[in-house]
Write a protein that binds this DNA or RNA. Structure first.
Lengths: 130, 130
DNA sequence: ATGAACCTTGGAGTGCGCTCCAGCACAAGT
DNA sequence: ACTTGTGCTGGAGCGCACTCCAAGGTTCAT
């Protein structure tokens, strides 16, 4: 039940980049920073091969990054993730992050209504000929 | 009907910083970058004095920044703002920005539901004793 | 009148998150 | 066989938005 087929021999880095919405450079950078849950395997000639599991984790990284979690915090999360019995800690991090995201959203929404007010003001001003 | 009194001689930079939620350094940086609508006046000894108008504009800058508008785009907006008859252009910029903010919000909200799902998963996992 | 607390400037430095590059190896299509 | 494309590494470079610093001036309370 995969959205897009991942062949058993794995995806090339460019394919994984396309699927995750990240750039090839970013993928290598994340790996260098230790953000991958498992490093992707290598072909006989040393090229990365991404499994479906690898790609799924990239999705998690995107989720965390695009909600504003800094690289170094993600790193801590991943390190936890790699050890068993850390479920409670992972939960704590996610819940703290959730609160953080909600605060962000709230602030942006407040500013958004101010933007809307300004837009309404200009719409009237422009309509009234300059 | 001002929220906090602004004396006629104006506020010091640190007072303006406190009111706007920006740092003193950021205030000077924004001014250097040409983000102020009007540069604040100076005391006899050359210290900045912020009027209520100045402080209000800082609020606008905060609104644009915290919704993700880059400094260089704000700069263009301010330059427009300083010229008369640019109301339609200002409106266009604000509307484009509004769309951008809505897109951002939407993406973050999507990721948020994914975070919530993960949290629910861990809540169950943790409850079931590790 | 001495010291702390504030302000000024120009410019250097920082942290973040990529992004790009050189120089090389391998892969795939024709 | 050849050419084009893709991949590898280590490391340099970049854009952004501040943030800090040195060196000095002013203000004010004790």
């Amino acid at each position: 039940m995969t959205v897009t087929e991942v062949p058993p021999e794995g995806l090339t880095i460019s394919a994984a980049a396309q699927m995750s919405g990240l750039s090839v450079d970013t993928l290598r950078y994340y790996e260098k920073e230790g953000l991958t849950l498992h490093r992707p395997g290598r072909s006989s000639s040393g090229q990365r091969r991404y499994t479906e599991q690898n790609v799924k984790w990239l999705g998690t990284l995107v989720m965390l990054r695009r909600t504003g979690m800094p690289i170094r915090d993600i790193k801590k999360f991943v390190e936890l993730y790699r050890r068993d019995g850390t479920e409670a800690d992972r939960l704590a991090i996610l819940e703290a992050h959730r609160v953080h995201v909600l605060e962000q959203l709230d602030e942006v929404q407040t500013h958004l209504t101010a933007i809307n007010r300004k837009i309404d003001y200009y719409k009237t001003a422009v309509m009234d000929g300059k």
